[in-house]
């Protein structure tokens, strides 16, 4: 391991597919032992960026290091120390759980392979179904197998591409507990997700849209940078109210949450003016701190104006 503070330290990373810029000059620093959340709408370039980090794609521009190795020239070294979990399940469906783990362990030349496979089966609770074919596993179990497989060579950096898509809440929570455990042991994790509760469990976040990094930092920093003001309203006939609010100057988002409505905008004064124009006694209005989801949707909407 080369002694740098950052597990990932890249600047200006760019990728084009047929002249279409998919990842646009992204700078990213991830500290060792940190869980770094990577968020963004579909097609924003998250997977493409991760593939460049682990040497699967060559960046068109940009420089930097991953675990101290140059991302452009030392891809072979990076591969040995990185665990990459692809977005789509990419282990062998016609191999059993144990055979898959064994294969990966052999490829990475894991010392004391048998024991390592056994340990990872036990830790992930897969020991009693180790002979089941991977293709017969349910989605959630496939995810667990994939995590077990990409941890088997004790990597220093985990790149997880939507590891919890389609996983039930309890399993997700366990998964995150496990991640925090690994991180406290010094493992660095870069994880993409579409779940806001997971984003909140990350040490740091980055938000990507249309290939551009729109915000990054801790949860509080991202929220602050979004500079979004949100009101919550409760009362009767919220649908009519929502219709009345939409399209008014200063109102950027109107979202229904069960029996409440969230109304947000970037300009506090204009937002309040808009609210005042529809306000009546039947409804209760309350200022609340903007949520991460509101913040991201706000970022995405403004990004659309800038880049689309």
């Amino acid at each position: 391991m080369k002694g740098t503070e950052f597990a990932i330290d890249v600047t200006g990373v760019t990728k084009r597919f047929d002249e279409k810029i998919v990842v646009n000059a992204i700078d990213l620093q991830v500290r060792r032992g940190e869980i770094y959340g990577f968020l963004g709408p579909n097609g924003s370039g998250k997977t493409t960026f991760i593939r460049m980090l682990c040497g699967l794609l060559t960046p068109d521009a940009g420089t930097g290091t991953c675990l101290g190795y140059d991302v452009r020239t030392q891809q072979a070294d990076i591969k040995r120390h990185v665990g990459y979990m692809t977005q789509k399940f990419s282990y062998y469906e016609d191999l059993s759980i144990r055979e898959n783990l064994d294969f990966i362990a052999r490829i990475y030349a894991v010392p004391d392979r048998r024991a390592a496979v056994e340990r990872s089966l036990v830790r992930l609770g897969l020991a009693n179904r180790s002979h089941q074919l991977a293709g017969q596993l349910s989605g959630g179990w496939k995810q667990r197998l994939a995590l077990a497989a990409c941890l088997i060579h004790s990597p220093q950096l985990l790149l997880l591409d939507e590891p919890t898509a389609g996983v039930d809440p309890k399993a997700r929570r366990e998964f995150w507990d496990e991640l925090h455990q690994l991180a406290s042991d010094g493992l660095t994790v870069l994880i993409t997700t579409h779940y806001m509760d997971e984003a909140e469990r990350c040490h740091r976040l980055a938000y990507l849209a249309y290939g551009n990094l729109l915000a990054r930092g801790t949860l509080a920093e991202v929220l602050a940078s979004a500079a979004l003001f949100t009101w919550r309203v409760t009362g009767p006939d919220l649908r009519t109210l929502a219709t009345a609010l939409r399209g008014r100057a200063g109102v950027e988002q109107v979202t229904a949450f069960g029996n409440t409505l969230h109304v947000s905008g970037h300009d506090a004064a204009m937002l309040e003016a808009a609210i005042a124009s529809v306000r009546d006694a039947r409804h209760t209005w309350q200022r609340i701190p903007a949520g991460l989801e509101d913040a991201f949707i706000g970022l995405m909407d403004s990004a659309k104006d800038n880049f689309a």
């Binding site: 191999l95 294969f103 052999r106 490829i107």
Partner: peptide, 26 residues
């Protein structure tokens, strides 16, 4: 590149995997 040489261990891993897959593909 620090591992440009052929690794027999990795080679063997692929061979074994192919045999298993062959066996499964009736």
């Amino acid at each position: 590149m620090s591992s440009p040489r052929l690794s027999l261990r990795r080679l063997w891993a692929i061979v074994l995997k192919e045999f298993i897959q062959m066996k499964r593909d009736r």
